[in-house]
Design a protein around this nucleic acid. Structure first.
Lengths: 382, 382
DNA sequence: CTGAAAGCGCTAACAA
DNA sequence: TTGTTAGCGCTTTCAG
């Protein structure tokens, strides 16, 4: 059709209404602007509006321009539901974390959200709290909302998740490892680099008896961190007493409890590495309760470098893992699977780096020069 | 139609396909089960399936039963997008927080999520980071996704938000205050109760010179907390030096900086109350840097009682505000607006309570007995 | 109480 | 290149 000249008056073309099979006027529908209104106002068909909005390249630039102008005037935005229904893509990304109350995750979420929104995606967050039941429920929620992809940032690949999503052909990215199947990818983290630095740092200070408080070992990432620790110790010529390798759960409580176990040992480590910062903060607390000082009585190193690490007392020496990188890469990986055609060249995926950040929880071990003079002794708790 | 008898074999009724105007077989469509499949299998119309699923009371119980059974067998769940498109309700709730990296919010989010999911809603989270621009973008995101309601937990009512949402008749709940208009509500928090306890606690310990580090005062809630403090001081017969009332921003950095300002004062308070826990943790850090001890050199009280408060060194005395209550009440309030018919009786809405939790950051002021003996002195930083 | 049919607002064939 | 049109899967009148 094309009413050759575009309307030059701003007044909303008053006689506008449902053009198709409209017997009765819609009730209560005030000024809902939909694609039809835009089309009419721009003097084109709804198909053209749709194409213009979706940047289909075959649209006449002049028309596209006119459409966009009307879109601006009317402040129109497409109905996401309708779009999703017909296109099958929801532009929703799932983000599954293990525990939203662990400060590392909000930091990750923030970055993830930003990147996703930039790319036009909304995110659906779910927290598993390490509970099987929650995992099921949040998987179902994601499925129901028809997310286009899911980032499983629980630091543990749960076959569980994958199978459900695979059935619906929904791309999934994990951390550290993923099933070798299409539509799944993973982000590799170079735990060794940072942990090696940490162990070496302690060794240089004179520590030989170094303990490690792991995360829940059924999580791959937690196991990987522990493995990295053991390996680094060995490569440096140190061996860690079995008793000094204790399993925590990445929470404050877990850190506290684990440290209390360590304190009950007859032969205690002089330094402890933790699988994450929350664990380390829990350790600090246990030490505080036992009236022990960091780093005088025990050197402590965390992992993650959450913002708070700079503010603990004393400020926590820790291994930094950039959650910004993690988030960005996770989204990118998802995008790659969503738009395989995109010439984004599937850029190489180097490992996510980790590096030591020295603050004030590490120092000379007990028994070192300063203590020999003072003849300091350690209290342990029964 | 109605193939009178329900199929007794489990095998997917093979000849099933699009029943309406199906010229070509859908390509690649494997085993997508939609309402039609369920209807066919249950031997009823899709309308009945819809009604059964939505618990419309007029459905024959026997039929409903049959439908539900098939739903179970097929593991069917309705397509959210389609449902949203036609019904106009997305079953999506927006949750706007000021800063997701402030641990208080993840705790709130967790509770909110749980309640919302229980009620069949999904939540869309957005963090404003106190930036105007972000507020706009997240408002738009909520509008685009057609949320059914929004909880603005930024602790500051931004007319901004309300106007945009009001235009689309989307219910909004705020904290502390809301515009007097339909489709908006607010949660009242009884700041005074907890703050009064806190001030009194300090007074009893012997503190007279009590400072307050506020949040960003353009946030109503921050202003309310400060006002409560000033009022409590007065009612107890104390006055706070103007210099001791400093504005922070609810972040670690803000707390640290504010404390540094306080430390630069010739006449310093012996105790400080903070508008939130993060501020207090920042204060602890500033004190640590200045080589001052809590509570020996300064008594400190936070607000919120985030989980971490129990783990600071020393553990933080703080005023608890239950984020569980907050979340529950926010969702309920939203529900009330969404289903005005619901006989939920619009239960009374008592204020959210706050109460003091004494831990270890409060003690006798400097100058009290213990220090007189020691002749302790304070270092301040220039 | 149940079924047939009309769309919700949009995208994607297919035609022109 | 643009317009027409058929649905996406569901809820909801409106008849029966």
């Amino acid at each position: 059709m094309s009413s050759s000249s575009s309307p030059r008056t701003k007044k909303p073309s008053t006689s506008k209404r449902k053009n198709v099979s409209a017997q009765r006027a819609p009730v209560g529908t005030e000024n809902k602007i939909d694609i039809r209104v835009v089309a009419a106002r721009a003097g084109v068909s709804i198909a053209t509006v749709s194409r213009a909005i979706n940047h289909v390249p075959t649209v006449d630039p002049a028309l596209a321009e006119r459409v966009w102008q009307v879109v601006g005037e009317l402040n129109y935005f497409p109905n996401t539901q309708a779009r999703a229904l017909v296109s099958g893509r929801s532009r929703l990304l799932g983000l599954i974390v293990s525990e939203i109350t662990n400060p590392f995750f909000p930091e990750l979420i923030q970055e993830f959200e930003q990147v996703a929104v930039e790319r036009g995606y909304e995110i659906l967050i779910a927290s598993t709290n390490y509970e099987r039941k929650k995992m099921e429920s949040c998987t179902r929620r994601m499925l129901e909302r028809k997310v286009d992809g899911v980032a499983v940032m629980t630091f543990g690949i749960e076959e569980f998740f994958f199978d459900r999503f695979a059935a619906d052909k929904i791309p999934v990215v994990f951390i550290d490892a993923a099933p070798l199947r299409p539509l799944s990818g993973f982000l590799a983290v170079d735990y060794r680099a940072g942990i090696y630095e940490a162990v070496q740092h302690l060794a240089v200070l004179g520590h030989r008896k170094i303990g490690f408080i792991a995360g829940p070992l059924r999580l791959r990432s937690a196991a990987a961190r522990k493995a990295a620790f053991v390996e680094c110790m060995r490569s440096i010529g140190l061996t860690s007493h079995q008793d000094w390798l204790v399993e925590g759960d990445h929470t404050l409580e877990g850190g506290r409890d684990a440290m209390q176990k360590l304190l009950a040992l007859p032969d205690q480590p002089t330094a402890v590495l933790c699988s994450n910062d929350m664990t380390a903060i829990g350790v600090q607390h246990a030490l505080f309760e036992a009236d022990l000082k960091v780093p005088d009585d025990l050197s402590l190193i965390g992992f993650d470098d959450i913002h708070l690490a700079e503010y603990t007392i004393p400020p926590l020496t820790t291994v930094r893992m950039s959650c910004k990188d993690l988030a960005l890469r996770a989204v990118n990986l998802l995008m790659e699977q969503l738009q395989p055609e995109s010439a984004k060249a599937k850029a190489a995926h180097p490992k996510i780096e980790t590096k030591l950040v020295v603050r004030q929880t590490t120092g000379l071990p007990r028994g070192a020069l300063k203590d020999l003079a003072a003849g300091k002794n350690v209290k342990t708790r029964g």
